[in-house]
Design a protein around this nucleic acid. Structure first.
Length: 219
DNA sequence: ATGACGATTTACT
DNA sequence: GTAAATCGTCATA
């Protein structure tokens, strides 16, 4: 009943892949064997060498971003701000450095463990259920994703992979977060969210299913 | 060798 | 709203 995403699904442009990943499930098996998972509700497309907001802008290729040049379905995990990890699904053709950043999940399996992971750092307030995977750094902390998983295969992998899931009824698009220095590219609507989901990142109020306002809706 | 800077999150005024 | 936290990475020298 639960089938994995196929590599074909990601062998496309980043924008199509970002849409397709909404509704899919990110699954993580811990060393203990425990299974954690969540439904993807927010993604961002990074278009590669021409995209000033991308790590591979102008063809940059370094030890850090090497996995962006790998085949579709590869995980690109990077460390940023001295404290957070973010996970991407590489797409396109091998050698074409484009990817989709997974920005938020609706937690499904292993919620207690996610909460424990998110409670390891000292924090004034304990993480709420809604905030467990609401943001790229948060979801990596909840699912214990770090650079050790960089370069892993998200299609046939054994520690982390993607499964098919029901697509959102409506998808909203808006500019990407945290890329203000990318000039015109910062304005492009390359962020995709499940409209109305309370698990989407941003300063959204915890209000009910209403469209909290971000992004024009689309489908 | 060095300095500036993050594809973020949290806390505080 | 603004600012601090915190360190690997990268461009420059």
């Amino acid at each position: 009943m639960t089938s994995r995403l196929s590599r074909r699904d990601l062998e496309t442009d980043a924008e199509s892949a970002a849409r397709k990943l909404l509704g899919a499930r990110l699954v993580r098996i811990l060393e203990s064997g425990e299974r954690l998972s969540g439904r993807i509700v927010e993604t961002e497309a990074y278009l590669g060498v021409e995209d000033r907001a991308a790590h591979t802008y102008a063809g940059r290729r370094t030890a850090r971003n090497e996995s962006m040049y790998a085949r579709a379905g590869t995980a690109y995990v990077y460390f940023t701000y001295g404290m957070h990890h973010c996970v991407n699904a590489v797409c396109g053709r091998e050698g074409e450095p484009i990817a989709v950043l997974i920005r938020a999940l609706e937690p499904e399996e292993g919620i207690d463990t996610m909460r424990a992971h998110r409670s390891r750092r000292v924090r004034k307030r304990p993480p709420t259920h809604r905030d467990l995977c609401r943001g790229p750094g948060r979801l990596c902390e909840a699912m214990e994703i770090d650079r050790r998983l960089d370069g892993h295969d998200l299609i046939g992998g054994g520690a982390i992979w993607l499964e098919r899931g029901a697509s959102p009824e409506r998808i909203a698009r808006s500019p990407r977060i945290g890329v203000a220095s990318a000039g015109e590219w910062a304005l492009r609507p390359l962020r995709f969210t499940e409209e109305g989901s309370p698990f989407v990142s941003g300063p959204g109020s915890a209000r009910g299913a209403g469209s909290s306002g971000t992004g024009r809706s689309d489908r």
